[in-house]
């Protein structure tokens, strides 16, 4: 798919959003979902965090002064990406410049959507998470091949990414192509289950 972006490593200062349960409605409010495209959604990323009801930038927001592309790593509180299955959430984050999201736990559907678009969800232990939450702007590097995250003091912690998704990201394997290659298996399954229904 054209949006598929291979990914090996990310190095950036961390943007910290120290809030638990950041749901996909906060990542991109539902009123921006009437689009039939996946492009250009970065302008709506965290829209209500960034803008007031008149569309002016909020001064008291953690996003004050932050422009798209300033940060490639987002560190957020637990249960990041909960709620709606909208893939517009990773599309918006990527278009805003993020390539990785780090939390102590990341919601299942968001995680799955993120991986399919080259946005890396990184789940770290609670102690590392706390350190990251309390270090806004810290320089972090993430190596997907080694599955390690390096903190500013050089300490390295490991994380796990589902092996198939990891291979897709590293080698640029397209999951739909992988599925299409297995159409004969799918046809065999369909023949078997049709027989079972008749018996």
């Amino acid at each position: 798919m054209t949006s598929f972006q291979p990914l090996r490593s990310v190095a950036s200062r961390a943007f910290v959003l120290d809030r638990n349960d950041v749901d996909t409605d906060q990542i991109i409010p539902a009123r921006f979902l009437t689009t039939t495209s996946r492009a250009g959604l970065g302008r709506f990323a965290f829209y209500d965090w960034r803008f007031d009801e008149h569309g002016r930038q909020k001064n008291d927001s953690p996003f004050a002064g932050v422009e798209p592309g300033d940060f490639a790593i987002l560190v957020a509180g637990s249960n990041f990406g909960c709620g709606s299955s909208r893939e517009h959430a990773p599309w918006a984050l990527l278009d805003f410049g993020f390539r990785a999201v780090v939390s102590s736990d990341i919601a299942d559907i968001f995680k799955s959507n993120a991986l399919k678009n080259g946005l890396l969800p990184v789940t770290v232990d609670v102690r590392t998470h706390q350190r990251l939450l309390s270090s806004p702007g810290a320089a972090i590097s993430i190596d997907l091949d080694a599955e390690t995250l390096r903190l500013p003091d050089g300490e390295t912690v490991s994380f796990k990414v589902e092996p198939f998704a990891r291979r897709c990201l590293l080698d640029g394997v397209d999951p739909l192509g992988f599925l299409l290659d297995r159409i004969p298996l799918i046809e065999a399954y369909e023949r078997e289950s049709a027989k079972e229904r008749m018996s």
Binding site: R38, E87, I109, S112, N113, N117, L176, L179, L180
Partner: peptide
């Protein structure tokens, strides 16, 4: 629930890759 990429996978193959 699934995301839009997976909606495409199901439309094209009637299957999903799932753990």
């Amino acid at each position: 629930g699934i995301g839009t990429t997976e909606v495409g996978h199901v439309l094209a193959t009637q299957c999903l890759l799932q753990r």
